[in-house]
Design a protein around this nucleic acid. Structure first.
Lengths: 251, 251
DNA sequence: CGACTTTTTGAGTCTAGTCAAAACATGTGG
DNA sequence: CCACATGTTTTGACTAGACTCAAAAAGTCG
């Protein structure tokens, strides 16, 4: 049984995608701007600057002054926190259309996490002061931002729960399902997680180790619930995984 | 060596403490109202209703419709999430002056956690619609709420990190320090955590078990870093605990 | 085709969980 | 004020899940 070759095909990031048209689309879809009329989006667009970031580059570091709000235009960005012991904890993986760095604009003044480009990326950013101007001009945006941050808080608390009570197996299954829901793409019978991510990353997301992730995923492959190769995963039987998450390992 | 008797003395909750004057003080100190003038606070106060809740009563349940914002006037409230396996995860312990239930008003529509009175409490609450009116009348309040929620998000992410990389010992030390910072009171040489909380609660906060918490805390007592009895703890050597959190167990 | 990285596998160890029972506080009613 | 009932904490023995270290196997890329 030949192992399938990597089915991941990355969209190429070339300068053209950060065209005006594309920028307007991305910005206009942000949860806190999407209710605004086209001309407002257009004005807001002028306050954003774009930059190309290549894979593994850092957009900012934990502890840096938080003076910008960022937006993934193209590519994937991961947010990590480093522990004193050197292990890194992967808080979230963001894809095109998601914002980051924001929470610190509102309240704190330094970033509490490091942002790393997972792939080559095009990143849009806006300064805190320019963002303030937007808030002043469109008061309901604040409200929408609040909703977005609240949602992330709820998600974070869910992860706290999972880390507290789930086994490594359940946490890994859960992380796969979450990524599939967010970044997945239908591929034949299954859902391909369209993102180059390693066992290492998955370990950092689930408070586990590469070895454990590898062993657990091998079990999942054996059961036929997923297919997987180097840096990719396809979910074949989401129901079984969900069941595992809810009920724990079958005895 | 006689074990010290419980030094915890709870302030008694009698109807008088929820007097007008006290309510104004509590409401006026909320991070998102404290910049408002006295007459505004007074008007806002009229939108709050108070209720007495006795220890172990639930203020609301996970899944309930989130149509109110709550405020601890007196007493302690804990926020928990229940897992399918029946274990409960303690997300936070709130004391007088802290708000809860809010994140769901802005965005979601059901509570994502259960709120339980840890002691007899006096709780103030305001309906979502009334809160909307306040937001409409005092636009900068939204901004302040956003800051408050952002802060909680950062805290939650810190806990995610801790659960991911810390040992049980470090998590317990960390939880004690956090509680001491928030609820602690100087008592002789040490800091008494002024709150009746059991090993059970501490286990639920740290993703651990009562037995493990007990064993770890016995070790801390032996080392002289804390004193502890039934439902109370006094931190005697915060520096050592901090060191343990940073560097891990001494070998 | 190599050189490199990622993934898998194995063996040994240890942390922390489980189950069970004893010891200890605390409050109650006689 | 003491003895008991109750809930909490501690202790012990056992177990298992997950980590560590080490090395082999398999993909990937130039």
């Amino acid at each position: 049984m030949a192992r399938p070759k990597s089915p991941v095909r990355l969209d190429w990031v070339d300068p053209a995608v950060c065209s005006l048209e594309y920028r307007l689309k991305i910005i206009g879809r942000l949860p806190f701007f999407k209710h605004l009329p086209a001309d407002a989006i257009s004005k807001i667009n002028n306050l954003f600057r774009d930059s190309d970031v290549s894979a593994n580059e850092r957009v900012y570091f934990e502890g840096d002054e938080a003076d910008h709000l960022y937006l993934v235009a193209m590519g994937k960005v991961k947010l990590v926190r480093n522990s004193a012991s050197g292990r890194e904890v992967l808080l979230d993986i963001l894809h095109s259309g998601e914002y980051f760095g924001s929470l610190t604009i509102f309240g704190g003044h330094v970033h509490t996490e490091t942002a790393i480009a997972q792939t080559d990326c095009c990143i849009l950013k806006i300064s805190a002061t320019d963002f303030e101007h937007i808030l002043a001009e469109y008061p309901d945006v604040t409200r929408k931002v609040l909703e977005a941050v609240s949602q992330r808080l709820a998600e974070s608390q869910e992860i706290v729960k999972q880390l507290s009570v789930y086994t490594a197996e359940q946490r890994i299954a859960s992380a796969l399902m979450r990524l599939a829901g967010k970044l997945g793409e239908a591929r034949g019978q299954g859902v391909l997680i369209q993102l180059p991510f390693s066992r290492q990353d998955l370990a950092a997301m689930t408070g586990s180790t590469t070895e454990t992730v590898s062993r657990v995923m091998s079990r999942f492959v054996e059961e036929g619930w997923i297919k997987s190769g180097r840096k990719w995963v396809t979910i074949m039987d989401a129901n079984r995984l969900e069941e595992l998450i809810k009920r724990g390992a079958v005895n």
